[in-house]
Design a protein around this nucleic acid. Sequence first.
DNA 1: TGCAAAAAGTAATATTTATCAATTTATTAT
DNA 2: ATAATAAATTGATAAATATTACTTTTTGCA
Lengths: 233, 233
Amino acid sequence: MSIKDIFPIEKWDFKSQSILQGLPAEDFAMLTANQTEQVYLKGEVVFREGAFPSGIFFIKSGKVKKYKVNETGKEHIIYVANTGELIGYSSVLADDRYTDSAAALEKSIVSFIPKEDFLKTLQLSEGLSRQLLKTLSHEFAVMANSISLFSQKSVRERTALQLVVLREKYKTGNAALVEINMSRDDLASLVGTARENVVRVLSEFRDKGYLTTQGRKIIVTDVKSLIRIANYH
Amino acid sequence: MSIKDIFPIEKWDFKSQSILQGLPAEDFAMLTANQTEQVYLKGEVVFREGAFPSGIFFIKSGKVKKYKVNETGKEHIIYVANTGELIGYSSVLADDRYTDSAAALEKSIVSFIPKEDFLKTLQLSEGLSRQLLKTLSHEFAVMANSISLFSQKSVRERTALQLVVLREKYKTGNAALVEINMSRDDLASLVGTARENVVRVLSEFRDKGYLTTQGRKIIVTDVKSLIRIANYH
DNA sequence: TGCAAAAAGTAATATTTATCAATTTATTAT
DNA sequence: ATAATAAATTGATAAATATTACTTTTTGCA
């Protein structure tokens, strides 16, 4: 049984993988002609809010958090981008500065595609343009869901939901044992609350047998209960 | 002095007006060839979350709220679309059901453009495609700002901010006297809190001289103080 | 115009969430 | 392996927000 049968994971996932997947080989070659690859260690910043974009980024491996920092320096994670996803492109398309920052959540390999190549390919490739419209529209829907989440759900419900979503993102070969390896600070910043509150909710879930922890790692053992708490009927 | 000098209004406004404004006359004609006009009275639903889109909507006059309804029937307003804006198009582009509902906030004239005409024009018009990508990217940034707003600001700060934004949307000829004519329930649903809380904050702002009320109408008299409270430096 | 219904406003209280202050446990570098 | 450092956890309390119950005002309509 797939998660899709019991939880609408697509409401919380950007699916930007499909942007490049559907691209004709010729267009893909043009797009990636001048790409440069770089390794980002955990915590290293890929781009920063307010900077002028000089290109877009493709995550070859690893995970990257997209976040905003408020006046007091507190950060808030908007989205966790996974291997295969494209980031930074909407700022290039809007012809605006980056509207959020991006940093590696774990050691990640990211390739940089210059703005000029991206825009040139966009002009020549009918498919890229159509695919971008589709993906952006979907991302828009995901953001709307996130807003509802914040305005209508409690910290406990939001934590349950994010654990279900993160479990999908941290899946590797062995789907039965997914280790969510994320600091409590990052998790709190994703849920949108203080670290202490997330820790308390995790303790409750552990006591009830919905998950186990190994150091910082979280292993969800009862997804269905978490889905029920997140209130997705 | 314009509001833009003291407040980043573009962070909270979709600017979807520009989609049709920049369109060549020929493309515009193709797009609107089969449009049909309809009057929606206050509260009437334009489209409903979960329905399959059969087209897109252009607001000729009036204001339309975009909202989601949760399991308990409570509604949450995601965005207030104004005269000149296009709505419902991202669901058509994503090839998905409507991900939110839309209803008139006041008597509004809305024209319906069939999906087929929209998609046909999109295929033939280089400009429409580019403009949609730009606008969608901007809308995405607005949504990201909204998420931050919810996760990092108090009800008081959010109310102040929404009043500043609404004041711009309710501007007509006389910019000095802008009447925000919105029910407390809708305002609460936009701020993301209970009606009682919004009423309390409004009372405080009235006592401090930042606004006056005439029945349900709100007249902001001191925008700068509201901007300061909303914490935009 | 005046009456009924709906909406707005107020107050008291309950609940949730944030903050502060520790202690315990894990991780990293030597 | 061990010490030093960072992160996670727990508990107590403060602050913010939600809920309940009610009164007053406004609005729409007979």
